[in-house]
């Protein structure tokens, strides 16, 4: 028995207390030292095991971020599919995201969407120029990609932050974490990847139909997951939140169509100042329903909308632009109205 103990001690000395051993030399002395160090190590490891399983990892360590990418292929596929199919009494966040919200899906969905929008927006433009053959020489616009990137990433990070602070501020029954909401929003963009490819088709009616279908599919998945959280609140806030979620989703889709796919139409007619023009139109489209959104969502969004307002105002509003803006405003209003009705049904 004593032999066995001695053996294990010897191993400990070899691995742990080398520098001390070099100085001391004597074996009995060494035993005392290593005993103390062992006890300290034991305490340390106890503390360690207490903290690690609860996910209390250092914010700057690699493992901290690794836990958000801890998903398998079939898990991601399941989340992708379920983010597109709304079912009554199904809570996407609680049933599919909840145990471990991942960032793999949202990040790569956003990146994919950025590039499909950039590529297909250019493709749509190419088909148009090839049809008209005004200048024959087609030049693809790389800056659609950077525009799409800022639009998508700000939508996916800011809107969940607004919703999270709303839930926290109203002390709602179901408290989702920020990452869960972010994950849900990221996955809700899945449906726009095939839609952005189909937007290449040069038919206004097809594009609008796609928007309605896509927004209904993913928008209601989001609405059904947030309904349990806001149900207990005042009627105005509960319905306002749901309408806000659907409305912002619709604005994103319509903004995409106007800015990345229809802007090409304008650029043929107006030439050089098309970039200012279309961005102005987009800002208008964003600010028009802003009162509706600002009613329910927190400061960050309304601040956003305010930031956009002066830009739109500074743009010279000639007849064409104002008519285009009102054309934008009408579908937004109808989409919101539809959302409200459906939300009321729920």
């Amino acid at each position: 028995m004593t032999d066995l103990e001695f053996q294990s001690f010897h191993n400990q000395v070899v691995t742990n207390v080398q520098p001390i051993r070099d100085d001391d030399g004597g074996t009995t002395y060494e035993f005392q030292h290593s005993g103390d160090i062992d006890r300290v190590k034991l305490l340390d490891s106890e503390n360690g095991t207490n903290s690690t399983p609860q996910g209390n990892k250092n914010l700057w360590s690699f493992e901290y971020y690794q836990q958000f990418f801890d998903v398998d292929t079939d898990q991601v596929m399941g989340r992708l599919l379920n983010s597109m199919v709304p079912r009554l009494k199904t809570n996407f966040i609680a049933q599919h995201i909840h145990p471990i919200p991942d960032l793999y899906g949202p990040f790569w969905i956003c990146v994919t969407l950025i590039f499909t929008t950039g590529i297909c927006g250019n493709l749509a433009k190419y088909i148009e120029t090839a049809g008209s053959t005004i200048n024959g020489h087609f030049e693809s616009d790389f800056h659609l990609v950077t525009g799409a990137a800022s639009a998508i990433f700000s939508y996916v990070t800011l809107v969940p932050f607004g919703l999270y602070s709303l839930l926290w501020y109203r002390k709602s029954e179901v408290q989702y974490t920020y990452l869960e909401i972010l994950s849900a929003y990221g996955y809700s963009l899945t449906v726009f990847v095939p839609v952005s490819i189909l937007w290449v088709i040069q038919l206004e009616s097809v594009r609008w139909a796609l928007i309605v279908v896509a927004v209904c599919m993913s928008g209601f998945v989001l609405a059904f997951s947030f309904w349990p959280a806001v149900r207990g609140d005042k009627k105005l806030i509960a319905f306002g939140t749901i309408v806000g979620i659907l409305g912002l989703h619709a604005i994103l889709a319509i903004g995409f169509k106007e800015f990345f796919f229809d802007a090409a139409l304008q650029s043929n007619k107006f030439g050089a100042d098309n970039a200012d023009f279309s961005s102005g139109a987009l800002d208008k489209a964003l600010t028009d329903p802003a009162p509706n959104a600002a009613l329910t969502l927190n400061d960050s969004q309304s601040k956003n909308a305010k930031g956009a307002e002066p830009k739109a105002a500074s743009n010279k509003a000639d007849d064409k632009e104002s008519s285009k803006a009102t054309a934008n405003g009408a579908p937004v209003a109808t989409a919101d109205g539809g959302g409200q009705k459906d939300a009321a049904k729920v």
Binding site: V71, D72, T73, D74, V76, Y104, W108, V111, T112, F115
Partner: peptide
Amino acid sequence: PRRKALAIYPIFLFYFV
């Protein structure tokens, strides 16, 4: 092997872009 597709997709996207 369970995550092979998840690792391969970004590589595919990178070269595609």
